[in-house]
Each structure stands twice: as structure tokens, then as C-alpha cells.
Write a protein that binds this DNA or RNA. Structure first.
Lengths: 178, 178
DNA sequence: GGCGCAAGGCTAATCCAATTAGCCAACCCC
DNA sequence: GGGGTTGGCTAATTGGATTAGCCTTGCGCC
């Protein structure tokens, strides 16, 4: 029996394929099958399903963070907030299954905290320039709107034909209005 | 062995208790235990876990719908939208476990469609007076903001001490601004 | 007042995913 | 080319969902 060349990172890759393939929630058996290995072998690389899910979440937060970083680099204030919102939504639209797999509350989980904080930090930078509580309020509004819209869209929740881009633009305009 | 007096509705009651008690996702065994019955007995009343979850979701949407209805009754335009948003958030804060158990996308599921449409209808009434696409855009913004804020708050996602009520009020103001 | 029968419990059994135990080959380093 | 570690595997355990089939309860009806 030849080695399969697995590793935690490789398993995360496989899990992302599995997610993208749309088969609902992750399972050890499905991932093992896709990796060409028997289920127990998975445990040589990760502690169990919970840890693998966390690693997958961390990877997705990382990817999202990089895209948000790139989109907001060099921008400030309203421009940064706009870019943040658009990049956030774009990610969810491009990878709906991955977005759905993201734990809502990464902070407090050892494997997710770092990546989650990075995303939050980028959002915080987008409301820079506001003072004290104003920044907090703006940050929360940004998160709520971005997450709410992304969730509904990733779930296929906008049934009507009316242009969703336009709806999003309206929402963004309201949020970043002076 | 005396009868336990179960019924689909009674099982939904039990499931809600179980949810409120915080034990994560619903399970047939947990519900059976709480109902004082063995797991197989559950199947005399509902088809399986999936159906029970759907019935629970429908009940929660119903309750939410009633509260939204009561909160927006007699109001129009911005007043209705404000009332809708505040009642929506209040529900999620009062019953975070129930809010988390709500399927994001009720439409298209036979058992959830009716209750889901009712909630959507109330939101639609809150943006009445806008014409055509404007109403759609406003409705989507309302849903996204309400759901996003409720989700984050129900997940414990707002860590800082800064007043969350104030943050929500700011967001509402932005959304209903003329 | 008792009979017939559906409804609603139960036990036993099945299936399937997660996980653990313990074996053994493959690979790496010397 | 031997020794230890790594990473597969098979077999076994556990626990939840679900199904099959039995048996009593309780109600309607004679």
C-alpha cells in the first residue's frame, strides 16, 4: 500500500474540493474517499472531524482575508469600506459552499482566532478615521450588512430576477453615506 | 406502558425546550429522552429528524411572524421598517438558540414555505410605498441587515462592551434614511 | 359491558458515520 | 541494510437514526 502523501494542509485541500462539490456538510468518510484512503487514515493527520472543520474554516478565513486585503489596500474611509463590502460579497458569491462552511464566530477558537481576527482587522481599518464608539458602530454595521447579504445570497435567498448587484450597491451607498 | 400523549405539535414543543436548553443541534434521542419516551416512538408522530426540524423551523417562523406582525401593525413606511427591524432583532436576542435553528432559506420547502412567506410578506409591507425595483432593493437591504445583525448577535459575535443597542439604532437609521 | 381495531408504546435489529486499537509496510537516516 | 517513525490498513466499538414487528391501551360501537 503506497503512501498517499497526505498532510493536514492536503486534507484541507481535499475538504474544500468536497465542499465545492456541494455534498452538504463535511464528513470523514467522504473526505477519505476523495483522498483515496480509508477513513481511519485521516486520524493520522488531524484529531477528528471537529479539528478538520476548524482547519477548513481557518483556510477559508485566510483566503477571504487575502482578498479583502488586496481589495482595500491603499484605500481609506468610504473607499475602503466600499471595497471591503464588494470584495466580501464577491467572495461569498464565488464560493457559496465555502462561505456557508464559515463559522460565524471564529474568535475564541484556537484554530480560527488568528484568521478571524485578520478579517476583522481589515474591516476595522475600513472604518478608520472614525473616533471611538463611532468606529465600533460603523464596524458592526459593516459586518452585519456584509454577512447578512452574503449569507442570504449564498443560500439562494434572493428569488426575484431584479438585479442583485444593484440591490447591493444601494445597501453599500446607505452604509457609507457621510 | 401508559400513553405519553404526544403529537407533532407536542414534539415541536419538546424540541423547542431542547433547543432553548442549548444542547446544540436537535437529535431524535435527545427529544425522545426529554419526552420520556424511547427513540422509535417518535416515528409514530413525525417521519424523521428532517421533518421534525422543518416543523420546528416552521413554528419558529410562525412565532417570529406574529411578533413582527404585532410590532408593525398600523405603521407605514419608515416607521414600519424601524419597527420591523427592532422586533426582528429583539426576537433573535430573546431566543438566540431558536434563531440559530432557523433555516436561512425557507422558501421552496413544503413545510416551511408558508411561515417563511408570511415573514417575508411583513417585510414587504414595511417597504410599501416604494415603487417597483426600489421596493425590492429596500426589502433586500432590510432582510440582509436584520439577518446579519441578528445572526452575529445570536452567535455572540459582538465582543466589545460598547452598547449594541446603539450600534443597531445607527444601522437602522442608515437604512430608513429618506 | 364487552369486542374490534387503530394508535402509539416498546424491544430487537439494521445501517452508517465517527472513532479507537493494534498490525505492518514504506520511508528516512545512518 | 537496519531501526525507528510515519502513515496506511483491518477489525472492533460506540452512538444515533431508522425500520420491523409485537403488544397494549383506549375508544367507538354493538
Amino acid at each position: 500500500m503506497p503512501r498517499a502523501g497526505l498532510s493536514p494542509a492536503a486534507l484541507v485541500d481535499v475538504a474544500l474540493e468536497e465542499l465545492d462539490a456541494g455534498g452538504g456538510p463535511l464528513s470523514i468518510s467522504a473526505i477519505a474517499a476523495r483522498a483515496g484512503v480509508k477513513p481511519p487514515s485521516i486520524y493520522k493527520h488531524v484529531a477528528g472531524l471537529a479539528e478538520l472543520e476548524a482547519l477548513v474554516g481557518a483556510r477559508i478565513y485566510d483566503d477571504l482575508g487575502h482578498e479583502l486585503e488586496a481589495a482595500t489596500a491603499g484605500l481609506e474611509r468610504a473607499d475602503a469600506a466600499r471595497a471591503f463590502l464588494h470584495a466580501y460579497r464577491a467572495f461569498a458569491v464565488r464560493h457559496p459552499e465555502r462561505y456557508r462552511a464559515l463559522p460565524v464566530h471564529p474568535l475564541g477558537h484556537p484554530l480560527l482566532e488568528a484568521a478571524g481576527e485578520r478579517v476583522l482587522g481589515i474591516a476595522a481599518r475600513a472604518v478608520d478615521g472614525l473616533s471611538g464608539d463611532d468606529a465600533i458602530h460603523a464596524l458592526r454595521a459593516l459586518r452585519a450588512a456584509a454577512h447578512g447579504f452574503a449569507t442570504l445570497e449564498a443560500a439562494g435567498g434572493f428569488g426575484l430576477a431584479t438585479d442583485v448587484d444593484a440591490s447591493f450597491d444601494r445597501l453599500v451607498d446607505r452604509l457609507v453615506a457621510p
